[in-house]
Simulated assay, not measured.
Amino acid sequence: MAVSTPAVGIVGTGSYLPHEPIDLEHYLAAGLELSPMDRGPLFRPPQRRHHVKPGDRASELIERAALPMFDRLGLDPARHVDLLLTNVLLPDDLFTGSGADTAHRLGIAPRTVLDVHNGGCASFQYMMEIAATFVGAGRARGVLVANVQNTAGQIFEQDGNRFKQHSLVAGDGCGVAYLAAGAETGGRLLGVRTRNTPSTARDIGMATDDGRHYWESGPSVLDVRFDPAVTKDTVEFGNRIVPELVRELADECGFDVADVDAFITNQPNRIFLRNWRTELDIEEERHLNTYDRYGNLYGAAVPVTLHDAVTRGRIAPGDLVVTAGFAHAGDFAAACAFRW
């Protein structure tokens, strides 16, 4: 589905990476042995990543990313946030999500608070669509969007998980963006393209060696696993879906993929990054990522990398910026475009 957007745009970005970075040498010293393939250019783990620690709350990460952003913008969030959208991979609280505690920490009381849980690694684009819908309906003028990845330090660092391939590439972090109606600076939202594929929703999930549900007590370690029977299909689908949506978005918005100045995606591994830009014929220098510094940031990868690019001057006025990603085993995917 494509969504044309009202006059709304990103006027500020921010990020927060918890604690000191953990180098790959930390794992090698702890007994990790890399195969010759794992040492190669496509399969080697990221050199660094950040991990949350026990007691770190997702709302705290959002606070540390958002408040400096509002300070830079010279805005009081209590007066300028009507809609708060959060996506947190591992919510701190079982029933309430992270939105309410985030609002409390920021000292805001938005008209609407939504925890957008199902968007996963494509949730940044999904929240752009929701923000544009609310602004277009006159229900919001200022929107705070926040993505948090916090499973690396809480699930993947546990004994029994630490040296697994998906654990080694995962990092924790938070990315935020502030959108405003009628924004004349920053990134003007041109359009959003989304696709739901519900049949793949159960191809990934929480799993234990003894088969217990995640809420049941037991000695086994909780992990995240793909259905091994469809792993090949999942990889092929992930390789295909992101370029498809980018091309569809380009057609809807009237631009050529060749004209994209900055392409930012979720960053599961180096292979997906390579395959996506190869399929779209986008040079590596235009496909921005923070994988080697921060690892797989899941849903937070797009806003963290966007803020990094803006801060480093990798995005200039007039640039066409496209962000995209797919979630979980592909049950949701999305792309969006901005004119900076």
Rank of each mutant, 00 (worst) to 15 (best):
Y126T: 07
Y126W: 14
Y126I: 07
A131K: 09
A132S: 14
T133M: 06
T133F: 02
F134M: 05
V135H: 06
G136T: 03
A137C: 01
A137R: 05
G138Q: 04
A140T: 04
A140C: 00
A140H: 03
R141C: 01
R141E: 07
G142S: 12
L144C: 02
L144K: 10
V145W: 13
V145N: 07
A146R: 03
A146F: 13
A146H: 08
N147A: 14
V148K: 02
Q149K: 05
N150D: 07
N150G: 10
N150T: 07
T151G: 00
A152K: 06
Q154G: 03
Q154V: 06
F156T: 02
F156M: 12
F156S: 10
Q158F: 00
Q158V: 02
Q158Y: 02
G160R: 10
R162Y: 04
F163V: 06
F163I: 01
K164W: 05
K164R: 12
K164C: 07
K164M: 15
K164N: 12
Q165H: 11
H166G: 02
S167E: 11
A170Y: 01
A170K: 12
A170D: 05
D172M: 01
C174G: 03
G175Q: 15
A177L: 09
Y178W: 15
L179K: 13
A180P: 04
A181Y: 11
A181E: 13
A183H: 05
A183E: 11
A183D: 06
E184R: 15
G186M: 12
G186T: 02
G187H: 08
G187M: 08
L189N: 10
G191L: 13
G191T: 07
R193Y: 15
T194M: 15
T194A: 11
T194Q: 15
R195P: 00
T197S: 08
T197E: 10
S199N: 03
S199P: 00
A201W: 02
A201C: 08
A201Q: 05
R202E: 05
R202F: 02
R202N: 06
G205D: 07
M206S: 09
A207N: 13
D209W: 12
G211M: 02
G211R: 05
R212H: 09
H213M: 03
H213R: 09
H213Y: 08
H213E: 04
Y214L: 13
S217G: 06
G218N: 10
P219D: 13
S220W: 10
L222Y: 09
D223R: 13
D223G: 14
V224C: 14
V224P: 07
R225H: 12
F226N: 11
F226H: 14
D227I: 09
D227K: 10
P228N: 08
P228K: 15
A229K: 14
A229T: 04
V230F: 07
T231R: 15
D233T: 09
E236T: 04
E236D: 08
E236R: 15
F237V: 03
G238A: 11
N239P: 00
R240V: 01
I241S: 00
I241G: 00
V242A: 09
V242M: 11
P243I: 05
P243Y: 11
L245E: 13
V246Y: 14
